[in-house]
Write a protein that binds this DNA or RNA. Structure first.
Length: 608
RNA sequence: GCCAAUGUGGCUCAGGGGUAGAGCAAUUCACUCGUAAUGAAUAGGUCGUGGGUUCGAUUCCCACCAUUGGCUCCA
């Protein structure tokens, strides 16, 4: 049996063992068991139980599973008719629903584990529980889950299980998990003084000097690159009157994700901040109701509309890095990955239909260059026309064909995922997904075609024949949210960012106070060359200075003593090792740093 | 929004019905010319917030807030 097949068979079988254990513990009449599929590192099973599963229960369930396996029970496959199946599971609502939803001609099979447990399943399974003797498993955690992933339906308790063919493999997985948790950007970001969160602004990062330095470098990089591709940056108001959101459609489709500032319907001005006017009433129906922008697009439309446009101007690319606010339901926030305030490397490009393909191609080229700079790999997803699409079907077909052609050229047919009918109602889209340290995927880049907004805002351009045409809008972001992207790269680099990006690039350690003068000279020379440098002039042991800079993961630490001062040299301590590179001429070191900045090099050289 | 867990000095965490403890960090002093944790002393906390139970709550109960892991939804 292939390893993959083996994994799927016995992980799946372990899910049944878990169900059997849970039923024996809680009593069959108290348990509704739903589904128990295998997943990447094990399996899970969904139940409704008489009470929540506690820490103590977890141990009990694990022990019961081991006990069941030791019974060496036979697993028996049985083909049954629909009515037999319904009879077997007559007290099980989820199984009954599953059976009723099976196609008419579907062969229904059930598996007996021992005489007292039966589950609806297409298999295949092991023949006897003793085949699981070597298997290593451990309950991972318990969480809530919705029946059939529908939040309007039953809330189930999902018990996750790690499951591997051997104890060593389980142990290796747990080690991996522990290491992954050490990459957590929430930990590293705090340790490196990058950012913080406070409940004075839930889900909104406070950027500290180091973190903001890096944030600025990302924007600088993005701006430089996009300038080469003829993008024009704009900026627009952070809060807009409700009338804008009514036109854009956000008030109808997105209002639950917006921070609203209700207008005043009656009352006088408050006279002081402490005792405000109690007669004042606020309502989102008031005309002066405002909302913080969750997206940049509507304002970009407003700027486009300022003047008439000729076909000769297209494509018009409006990029922007403005702050966006999106209100999240509680429980959705996650460090920098999911926040309520963020910036995107956003852009709205106005094109004619004929320009779509070339424009998207250029976008993909930019994306490629950016991701390559960070050494990130991503997965592309193509989402096509949904049922409630807007616009004419011919435009959709042409747009989708253009996107598909680009994707095929770029990634090769079949090397990207196609989500049929999953596009936005206003246009098809390409999303780029990147994994975090724990293997969770996050959408970063996105390229979306939009037929709707130009319509809502009645955008036009004058075509060659003098007729009024409606442009198509391309929304795109490559980093996506800069916050999310910084979270991703923090985990990717484990806080040891590339030289060009690190908050401080060079740290300087004068060995004793009498070397401060030379250190100052080195500092100024580095700053002159545009290199971000920090120096510790304090009167403490050099080891302490080095320790602090190492903890902050500065790429190069320069140690300066008599020898260096006399020869205008530096001694370089390279991040990631304790090797010292001695007798490097200062000018040579600076040239190297400038080169690393210019090339945005990923590797950190230890030769100068 | 739902299920569960967590919240103790700047950070990491221990403790537990009788008004709090460690390590790191900070401050002061000493040490300090060769590459990652020198020594001593000092200071710092109404134990997330608000109620309740109790003679007494940081500890038990309730609500709320925030965070984490999932579900759902998204950049």
């Amino acid at each position: 049996m292939e390893r993959e097949e083996f994994l799927s068979v016995y992980r799946h079988s372990l899910a049944h063992i878990m169900a059997k254990a849970v039923i024996e513990i809680y009593g069959k009449e108290n348990v509704q068991y739903a589904i128990g599929p295998q997943i990447a590192d094990g399996c899970y099973y969904d139940f409704t139980l008489p009470r929540p599963v506690s820490e103590d229960d977890i141990k009990v369930i694990e022990d019961k599973m081991r006990e069941i396996i030791k019974r060496r029970e036979n697993w028996t496959r049985k083909e049954v008719s629909r009515s037999e199946a319904l009879e077997i599971f007559k007290d099980q609502k989820f199984k009954t629903e599953l059976i009723n939803d099976l196609p008419e001609d579907e062969l229904i099979t059930v598996y007996y584990t021992g005489d007292d447990f039966v589950d609806l399943c297409r298999g295949p399974h092991i023949d006897n529980s003793q085949e699981l003797f070597q298997a290593a498993f451990q309950i991972k955690n318990v969480s809530g889950a919705y029946w059939r992933g529908d939040e309007k339906r039953d809330q189930l308790q999902r018990i996750y299980l790690f499951a591997f063919p051997s104890k060593d493999e389980l142990k290796a997985h747990l080690t991996w998990l522990k290491e992954a948790q050490e990459r957590d950007h929430k930990k590293i970001g705090v340790a490196l003084d990058m950012f913080m969160f406070r409940d004075t602004a839930p889900g909104m990062a406070y950027w500290l000097p180091r973190g903001w330095t890096m944030y600025s470098q990302l924007m600088k990089y993005s701006r430089e690159l996009q300038a080469k591709h003829d993008y024009n940056e704009i900026s627009a108001p952070l809060i807009n009157n409700k009338k804008l959101w009514l036109i854009s459609g956000h008030w109808a489709h997105y209002v639950n994700n917006m921070f609203i500032v209700p207008g005043k319907t009656q009352g006088t001005e408050a006279t002081d901040a402490v005792s405000s006017d109690e007669t004042a009433q606020f309502s989102i129906e008031a005309e002066d109701t405002m909302a913080a922008k969750p997206m940049n697009c509507p304002n970009a439309m407003i700027e486009y509309k300022r003047t008439m446009h000729s076909y000769k101007e297209l494509p018009i690319r409006y990029s922007e890095y403005d702050v966006l606010h999106r209100k999240e339901k509680s429980g959705q926030m996650n460090g920098l990955f999911r926040v309520q305030e963020f910036r995107q490397d956003d852009d709205h490009t106005f094109v004619s239909e004929a320009q779509i393909k070339d424009e998207i191609k250029d976008v993909i080229a930019i994306a490629d260059e950016i991701y390559k700079t960070f050494g990130l790999t991503y997965r592309a997803e193509f989402s096509t026309r949904p049922d409630d699409f807007m616009g004419d079907i011919e435009s959709w077909n042409r747009a989708e064909a253009a996107l598909k052609e680009i994707l095929d050229e770029k990634y090769g047919e079949g090397n990207y995922e196609i989500n049929e009918g999953d596009g936005a109602f206003y246009g098809p889209k390409i999303d780029l997904q990147i994994k975090d340290a724990l293997g969770r995927e996050w959408q970063c880049g996105t390229v979306q075609l939009d037929f709707q907004l130009p319509h809502n805002f009645e955008l036009t351009y004058v075509d060659q024949d003098g007729s009024q045409k409606m442009p198509i809008v391309i929304h795109r972001a490559i980093f996506g949210s800069l916050e999310r992207f910084i979270g991703i790269i923090t985990e990717h680099f484990k806080g040891a960012y590339p030289f060009w990006l690190n908050p401080f690039q060079v740290a300087v350690v004068p060995i004793r106070e009498e070397h401060n003068e030379y250190a100052k000279k080195v500092e100024m020379a580095l700053k002159e060359a545009g290199i971000r440098v920090e120096v510790d002039y304090s009167d403490i042991n050099m080891r302490d200075k080095i320790k602090r800079f190492k903890n902050m993961k500065d790429p190069y630490i320069l140690v300066l003593g008599n020898e260096e001062a006399a020869a205008e040299e530096v001694s370089v301590n390279v991040r990631g090792s304790n090797q010292q590179v001695r007798n490097v001429p200062l000018t040579k070191f600076i040239e190297k740093c400038k080169q690393l900045n210019a090339d945005r090099t990923l590797e950190l050289p230890s030769e100068f």
